[in-house]
Every structure is written in structure tokens, then in C-alpha cells.
Design a protein around this nucleic acid. Structure first.
Lengths: 176, 176
DNA sequence: CGCATAATTGTTATAGTATAACGATGTAAC
DNA sequence: GTTACATCGTTATACTATAACAATTATGCG
């Protein structure tokens, strides 16, 4: 018990970081994530096929980002052998649905765990250089400012990326 | 003269966009860019070798971003045939010196045309989806806010990047 | 200068990321 | 149930990046 996880037992008000402790990464949480994805696919009228579910489960089952070929390898271990292109096609559908995000700086993907994107609030990504964990925090005000900076330069923005690399709370603590 | 380039003749106060018109992309400007790079290498005590200069010239000679293998191809056309690894090693030195930047979202590189990075002001990148041009605008206040958002999530930021894809002034005008 | 040392580049091979093209199969709507 | 469309399989290939080790070039010092 060297790493107390206070928050989980006393409600969510004390959770201040998008980096859940390992004890919080439960099968139940994973099931909820998958169910949420299922609903999003249904709402958007995109088919959540078996292949897409399998790919999504591999991505969601890690709190790190994961590369396409790593997904491929893990699925192969479980008996599902597909070609790289199939993984990428599934990834495209998952990105389109918004249930995963792409980390441009690592050519890797991670499951979205926020529920406020649909409300028009865009997140920025925090990627731990040590353990690979990825967290999202709301960055809507920052994206607004980026838009202003762009239009101020007579540039018409369409897609924006904000990524931060550094140390997650646990790794920052252990490396001191 | 359908695209008047007012700013260059009357001081810099009227320059409002980091996307110079083609008429402004002169050999003289390029020479200045290279000279500036030479000075930066000297100041930092990094060697600006022939190979590094050649690679830098290919990058600086385009106002777009350019991939490593495109640099390779253009140098080969001019008679300098080297292996990919040599290009990447030169790129590493140029990145280290700060005379080029890497566009994470495109796996490509472009010449830095700002002079205020050394003053601690970091830029964000504007990448045109139509013509490929890349501009930089100051984003220090945005990077500060990103740092605050990260630390607010108990994340220790180390490297940050902000990239925007969209349309540069000229392409936005012609696509209307 | 001439040697020792370090930095750079060459050479070869390979790892890692992503997509093109086309055919087969499955799904939905009429 | 047939048509139309989306999805997936199969094969091949393009693009991005680095590992390992040898050869060469530049630098500092006696």
C-alpha cells in the first residue's frame, strides 16, 4: 500500500487529475467505456462492428497510448489475425466517432475518457514520457485563444493540435 | 501586381501575417536566413558542416514544410547522394540549433523565420492544407496557459506543441 | 607539426508507420 | 431477393525513422 488512492473511496470531488491510479483501472470502468462507445456509435449511425470493437477494446484496455502495430500484435495473440490496413480502417472509424484520439507526437492512439467533447469543449493531451499514460484536460479557452492567434495572422484555422509531454503525477513523484 | 507587398518597403509595423507573398521569397531573403543560421551555429558552438548547410538550404528554400525523403531527393538531383540516416542526423543538428522546426502532425520540417525564440517566446505553427506553407506566430501566452492547465492536472510539463491546420491568407482568398 | 580524441559522415541493414488497389463478403433498404 | 453500399480480406508497396559499426574529418594539446 505504498501508493494510497484516496479518491476512489470518497467520491469524485477530490479527483483532480486525469491520471487514474492503477486500482481505478477496473474491468467495470472498462466496460463502462465500451458501453459509452457503443452508444456514441449508435447515436451517430456508424456501425460498431466486431472488428472495431476489438480494436477499441485493445486501445481502451491500456491507459497509455498504443500504436497500430501493437494493437495488431495483441489481437493476434488472442487469435484475431488481420492486416495492418484493417487496423487502420477500424482506427479511422473510431476517430470519426470520437471515441479515440490520435497523439500526433507519438503516432499512437488512446481512448477518450471524457464526456464533454460533444458539448463543444475540446481537450488538450498530456502524455507521460515515463509510463506512457495519457490524460485529457479541458482546453476550450486555450483553443479559443489559438483560434484568435491564427485569425490575427490572417490564417483560417480548421484543425488544432495541442499536446504536452512530461511526467504524470505518479511518475513525477517516483522520480524525485 | 495583384498581390501588393506593402510591408517590405515601409518598415515592419504593417506586417500582419507570417505568410510572405511569393515575390517576397527572394534569393536575398534566403541568403539572410542562411547567414542567420550560420551565426546561430557559431554562437552555440555547433558545427555548421557542409551537409548540414545543404540540408538547411533545401528546407529554407521552400516556404512549405518538407519531409526528410523529399530533401534527400532534391539533394540527389543536385548531385549529392546520401543515405536517409545522414539527412536525419543533419536534421537533428538543425533542430538542436533551433533553425528549423518539426511539424509533428505532418512528419515534416520547416525553416524558422523568427528571431524572438531566443528571447524565450515560443511560437505556434500554422500549416496551410492547400499550399503547404507554414507560418509561425508568437504563442507565449498560450504556452503559459497550457503549462497552467497541465500543472493544474498534477502533470509536470516538459515539451509542448501547438499546431494549427487550415488555410493561409492566399489560399483562403482563392478558395472563396 | 603530429598525435590523440572526439565529432561527423558513410555504409548497410532493418524497424516502424501508413496506404493503394481490387476483390469478396456482409448489411440495409426497397 | 435483388440492388446498392459499407465493410473487410488480400496483396503489395510507400513512407518515415533508426541501429550498428566502419571510415573519415575536425579539434585540441604537447
Amino acid at each position: 500500500m505504498s501508493q494510497p488512492a484516496q479518491a476512489s473511496q470518497m467520491g469524485e470531488t477530490t479527483v483532480r487529475t486525469p491520471f487514474p491510479a492503477p486500482e481505478q483501472q477496473t474491468a467495470k470502468k472498462l466496460a463502462q467505456t465500451i458501453e459509452r462507445a457503443t452508444k456514441i456509435f449508435a447515436d451517430k449511425n456508424i456501425r460498431f462492428t466486431k472488428l472495431r470493437q476489438q480494436v477499441f477494446e485493445e486501445i481502451a484496455a491500456t491507459y497509455s497510448s498504443i500504436g497500430a502495430y501493437e494493437i495488431l500484435a495483441r489481437m493476434a495473440e488472442k487469435g484475431t489475425r488481420v492486416a495492418p490496413i484493417s487496423i487502420y480502417r477500424a482506427i479511422d472509424a473510431l476517430l470519426e466517432a470520437g471515441v479515440i484520439h490520435r497523439l500526433e507526437s507519438k503516432n499512437a492512439f488512446f481512448a477518450c475518457r471524457r464526456t464533454d467533447h460533444s458539448k463543444g469543449r475540446r481537450p488538450l493531451f498530456l502524455s507521460c514520457e515515463k509510463c506512457g499514460a495519457v490524460g485529457e484536460v479541458d482546453g476550450q479557452h486555450i483553443f479559443d485563444l489559438i483560434g484568435e492567434a491564427a485569425t490575427g495572422a490572417k490564417f483560417a484555422p480548421r484543425v488544432k493540435f495541442v499536446e504536452v509531454q512530461g511526467l504524470c503525477p505518479r511518475c513525477a513523484a517516483t522520480s524525485e
